[in-house]
C-alpha cells in the first residue's frame, strides 16, 4: 500500500489473549469516544469521513482461530485514507461484508462470518504466531512478517464477494436496527455516499446504545448513520428512522426536508403511531423552542 492510506489489524494468538496491533498501531484511538455506547468486543464500527479523508474502525470480527484455552479470537480492522480512492472502495467492501455479517450475530459467543473468514485465509495461525512473536522480540514495527500485514489485509478484502447489498439513502440522518435488512442496506448506501462520493459524515454500528442515546452519540455530527442494538431486545424496532439532527433546528440548514425520511420508513412495517407521534411532537417543540430562542431541551 502507498503512504496516503494505511490499514491496521489487531488480533491475538495461541499463547496469549492480549490483543495487539500486528505492527504499527493507529496514532489515535479515535473510536474510543463511543466506548459507552458499544462493547468493542462485539461487532462495532466507527467510520468518520471529513475533508475528503476517512478513518474507519471495525471490531468484533470473529475468527475461527482460538487461543490455547479455546477462547475464540477476533479481529479489529482499522483503515485510514482518502475518500474516492481505491482504498475507500476497499473499505466499502469490507464494511459491506461486516454489515452483511451482522445478520448472523446472536446473543452470546460470536461465530466467524464472511469478513472473519476472509481474514483467516490471509492470516493463518502460523503467520499470526510469527507476527506476534516478532512483535514481542523486536522493537521494529514493520520488519519480518509485520511488513506483510497491510498487503494481507488488502488480499483478504479483495477476496470478499462483491455482491454488496446497498439501498439508496438520501437522508442526512438515519438510524435503524441491525436486524432489519433494509436498515443494513440503507447504511451501506449511506457509506457509499461518504466513501465514494466523498461526503462528510459518520457511521456508527453500536451494540449497547439504543434510540435514547442517539442525540448523545451523533447530535453534533453534520451527518450520521447509525445501526444499533442487538442484545437487549432492540431488534423489535428494526425500522430505519430519520433522526432529527439537532433539537431546535428542524430540517437544519442544508438538510433534506424531513418528509423524505418519513416516506422511506413507511415501507417498513413497525413504525408505530406512538413513535410517529413522538417525532411530530418533538418537531413541534423544536420549532417552538427555536422561535422562543431557547436552548435545546436536554442540554
Amino acid at each position: 500500500m502507498g503512504s496516503d492510506h494505511t490499514a491496521y489489524l489487531m488480533t491475538a494468538g495461541l499463547s496469549s489473549d492480549d490483543y495487539r496491533f500486528l505492527g504499527r498501531a493507529p496514532k489515535e484511538a479515535f473510536w474510543r469516544r463511543y466506548a459507552d455506547y458499544t462493547s468493542f468486543e462485539r461487532p462495532s464500527a466507527v467510520v468518520f469521513c471529513k475533508d475528503g479523508a476517512f478513518r474507519a474502525y471495525l471490531s468484533g470480527i470473529a475468527s475461527a482461530r482460538k487461543d490455547r484455552t479455546k477462547t475464540p479470537l477476533r479481529y479489529t480492522l482499522v483503515m485510514e485514507g482518502q475518500a474516492r480512492t481505491p482504498a475507500a472502495e476497499s473499505l466499502l467492501f469490507a464494511l459491506a461484508a461486516f454489515v452483511g455479517d451482522l445478520v448472523h450475530v446472536k446473543p452470546g459467543p460470536l461465530s466467524p462470518a464472511s469478513l472473519g473468514e476472509a481474514l483467516d485465509k490471509t492470516f493463518p495461525e502460523e503467520f499470526v504466531e510469527a507476527a506476534l512473536s516478532h512483535l514481542r522480540d523486536t522493537d521494529s514495527k514493520d520488519t519480518g512478517p509485520l511488513a506483510e500485514v497491510e498487503s494481507r489485509i488488502e488480499k483478504a478484502i479483495a477476496a470478499l464477494p462483491r455482491d454488496t447489498h446497498a439501498a439508496d439513502c438520501h437522508v442526512r440522518f438515519f438510524c435503524g436496527g441491525r436486524a432489519s435488512e433494509s436498515a443494513r442496506a440503507t447504511l451501506v448506501g449511506y457509506a457509499e455516499r461518504l466513501l465514494i462520493d466523498g461526503e462528510a459524515g459518520t457511521i456508527l454500528i453500536v451494540n449497547l446504545a439504543s434510540r435514547e442515546h442517539l442525540e448523545l452519540m451523533g447530535g453534533t455530527e453534520p451527518s450520521c448513520g447509525v445501526l444499533f442494538a442487538g442484545e437487549s431486545g432492540e431488534e423489535a424496532h428494526s425500522d430505519p428512522l430519520e433522526w432529527p439532527p439537532k433539537k431546535g433546528f428542524p430540517g437544519s440548514p442544508k438538510g433534506l426536508p424531513r418528509a423524505f425520511a418519513l416516506r422511506e420508513v413507511q415501507a417498513e412495517p413497525g413504525l408505530s403511531i406512538p413513535h410517529l407521534g413522538r417525532i411530530i411532537l418533538r418537531a413541534l417543540r423544536s420549532v417552538r423552542d427555536f422561535f422562543l430562542g431557547r436552548r435545546p431541551a436536554n442540554s
Binding site: Y19, A35, F40, E41, S59, T69, T71, G108
Partner: peptide, 21 residues
C-alpha cells in the same frame, strides 16, 4: 450462558475486555 452450554463450562466464551467501560 453460552459458556455453560450442555453441562460443560467453556471459559473461553467470555473473551477479554477490549476497552475501558
Amino acid at each position: 450462558r453460552g459458556s455453560l452450554l450442555a453441562g460443560e463450562f467453556h471459559p473461553g466464551a467470555l473473551g477479554g475486555t477490549q476497552a475501558p467501560f
